[in-house]
Design a binder for these strands. Structure first.
Lengths: 211, 211
DNA sequence: CACGTCTTTTACCAAATGGTAAAGTGTTTT
DNA sequence: AAAACACTTTACCATTTGGTAAAAGACGTG
């Protein structure tokens, strides 16, 4: 039957699986699903292709696992925190900062999603419809309420989200371009802070939202 | 029986090449370079793989041709029009609108670039350094002058560009997601107009730029 | 130590991939 | 009409791809 102690082998397996998922995330981030090979993932993870296949029996399963590993935290950060006591400015500022943190902390995850969406979201489409869209519509309503109450300027709430998503995720997805133009080999904490500060001021000014 | 002037064969070749480039753009847009096969491009163009290879002797050459085909118009639209008589608001509004038009008119080109940049810009890096960066730095200076003159609020000019680029290109690159959330099978002219209007108002308000 | 279970390696394989070679067809030029 | 050129098809090929099968090793438990 089942062991009481967390069976040494299982513990090991979890570690190997985590290592593989990190490696796969990196490879898929660069080349997308079709452009990535199991061999490349195995190399990146430091094991043989056959062993990789032992842990993840197919490329599709591996890809789905990578997505599943990120999707919940991802969608959570794409929706507002529901705090009825906070002001619009506070909610939006917290929102922007957490999105930038996501780009900083999970650049590969962000790129995997970017590939998936550019590709037409063949895998994530249903999930986005079921989980992101309802949240999105709720958040739209909240923004419309703010507009009705005169708390922010009247703007197109849908496009506000598209703009915030795009301009926060660009620090992950297009980091190469940004590094190139800033003349930096890599974006550091200061760059992300500047990005957050810029975007918060920018968006709050655009909305005419007082802190 | 046949035209003498612009050598019938050459004229035909130009047409076939154009057809192939359109097809390749579409395929590369979906899967990126490594994810695309010559077979897929040939299929999309409606000819045999061998014939495709006759016109474009290698996949790399085809990819480079696709990029070369877009890059100049692309970089041109990423830089300000130098009109010393126009106000900041006018320049920026024109800039945003032309970027949105680019997303509307060349969604596949935009996605090919997106793949290329996400991938680390292996092909375009040098070109961006040589052509985009100098223009970028010139435009930064112009914005700093506006700030000094009190024509717009003081903001981080670099990040202003990153935000405008991201939020205009998202209507091409992430159109799947936007369609999904707007509940539309395709973005139409009205959607692009709304996006332009939103972004112009949004950015000009954020900058405190009077029209 | 012998047993079953989990892990790793070795050996293979059919399909897809980018590409070559050359034969055949059509068209233009001399 | 013949030579020269441009286009298209057919045949082929080495490598890479995702994946299977099974043997060999590692290891804790009875």
């Amino acid at each position: 039957m089942n062991q009481v102690a967390p069976r040494k082998t299982s513990a090991n397996r979890a570690k190997v699986e985590a290592k593989i998922l990190r490696a796969a995330e990196k490879v898929f981030a660069q080349k997308g699903f079709s452009g990535s090979s199991m061999d490349a993932v195995a190399d990146q993870a430091g094991l043989s292709k056959q062993l990789l296949i032992y842990y993840f029996p197919s490329k599709e399963f591996l890809y789905h696992s990578v997505l599943r590993n990120m999707i919940d935290i991802w969608i959570e950060k794409m929706t507002f925190v529901d705090d009825p006591n906070a002001s619009p400015a506070e909610i939006i500022e917290a929102y922007i900062r957490q999105k930038i943190e996501l780009s900083r902390d999970y650049p590969n995850g962000s790129k995997v999603f970017a590939h998936e969406i550019i590709n037409g979201a063949p895998v994530l489409k249903d999930y986005l419809l079921d989980h992101l869209k309802p949240q999105f519509e709720k958040d739209i309503q909240l923004i419309n309420k703010w507009i009705e109450n005169g708390q922010i300027r009247p703007i197109d709430p849908e496009h506000l989200f598209f703009t915030i998503w795009a301009s926060t995720q660009t620090y992950a997805d297009f980091s190469t371009q940004i590094q190139l133009l800033l003349g930096k080999p890599k974006l550091d904490q200061k760059d992300f802070d500047r990005a957050s500060d810029f975007l918060c001021h920018f968006v709050l000014n655009a909305l005419g939202a007082q802190k």
